[in-house]
Design a protein around this nucleic acid. Structure first.
Lengths: 166, 166
DNA sequence: GATGTTACGTTATAATATAACAATATAGCA
DNA sequence: TGCTATATTGTTATATTATAACGTAACATC
């Protein structure tokens, strides 16, 4: 099966990335329409670039890609769009990389975990309820009210273990 | 009981912080002696400052504290000491804060989880084997080799929930 | 179309971190 | 002890990530 979206695993060789990007944007457009959010041309383009990069991408990389296509852009331009996309659950920020990646489940307001390959740079997004429940249990024991969870695991993905030089 | 080290919870009112700092430094000295590591005056002082701050502290805060006591210091000065302390498990880096905190179990090379209070700035270090095992299970399913784990939970600690203005 | 709000442009700067090379201190050995 | 290799620290410059502050343009609502 050739999944049309970035699934909860590292993309395989037969992964059709163009379809995956298109699907994600369609989903974002629908979501914003439903929610009365303004997915402006700039925000749309930034989201598209994030998906097109196909792996966590830095704000200044995105900025360069925008300016290369002729758009006038300074850091605030990109950070504002990133803020909008983050606030509305269309992308995630990967803290340990200072990078941004498209969200697989836009609008669900879920807590995600990321497995990040240090060889190829790809990141797999999981949503393991078990991790959430263990964290919740610890928080309860501490009397701690959870606001935000950051779970990021760095290492080597299965593909990169097979071929040493990706 | 008045614990003499920062325990696996948020410090209580009767927490004797001076003893806690002294204890941590003694432990670090012993550990470095055993391992043949050079805990130089600078590194010792940086570690002391980290413990004395009693909560995650930024590199440039430490730098300022060093210069205020008359020592010549530039960013590389502090980052090198931080690198040494990180490599040898004497401190942790809290990615989501870009800050550093003393390790409760120096030398154990353990994976820690942090619960960070957004009100008082304190961080509790846990070492919950259950979280590790769940992550390990997910990694196995993905065929992913884990190198480094980052688990950071932000929220409000029990003390701060009781008194609104800490 | 007047008006309030949201989004974007622009300039400057803050905050965090590293590169590159020189000077000094320390350890280990002749 | 003195020599030499290595580790540590000093110093200058710069890279990288992010935000403040303020003006302008677009849009939405009346």
């Amino acid at each position: 099966m050739n999944s049309s979206k970035r699934s909860e695993q590292f993309p395989t060789a037969d992964h059709d990335h163009q379809t995956c990007v298109t699907h994600a944007l369609q989903e974002a457009e629908d979501f914003c329409l439903q929610q009365g959010l303004r997915l402006t041309e700039l925000r749309h383009r930034v989201l598209e670039l994030i998906w097109a990069n196909h792996q966590p991408v830095g704000a200044y990389d995105l900025l360069e890609q925008l300016t290369h296509e002729g758009r006038k852009a300074a850091p605030p331009t990109i950070y504002r769009s990133l803020d909008f996309l983050l606030e509305n659950g269309l992308i995630h920020r990967i803290t340990s990389l200072n990078a941004y990646v498209g969200c697989n489940h836009p609008g669900l307001n879920h807590a995600a975990q990321f497995f990040i390959c240090e060889a190829c740079g790809q990141a797999a997004e999981l949503d393991d309820a078990k991790i959430e429940s263990v964290i919740a249990r610890d928080a309860k024991r501490l009397g701690f009210t959870v606001e935000k969870r950051t779970v990021e695991v760095a290492g080597i993905c299965a593909h990169c273990k097979q071929r040493p030089n990706p």
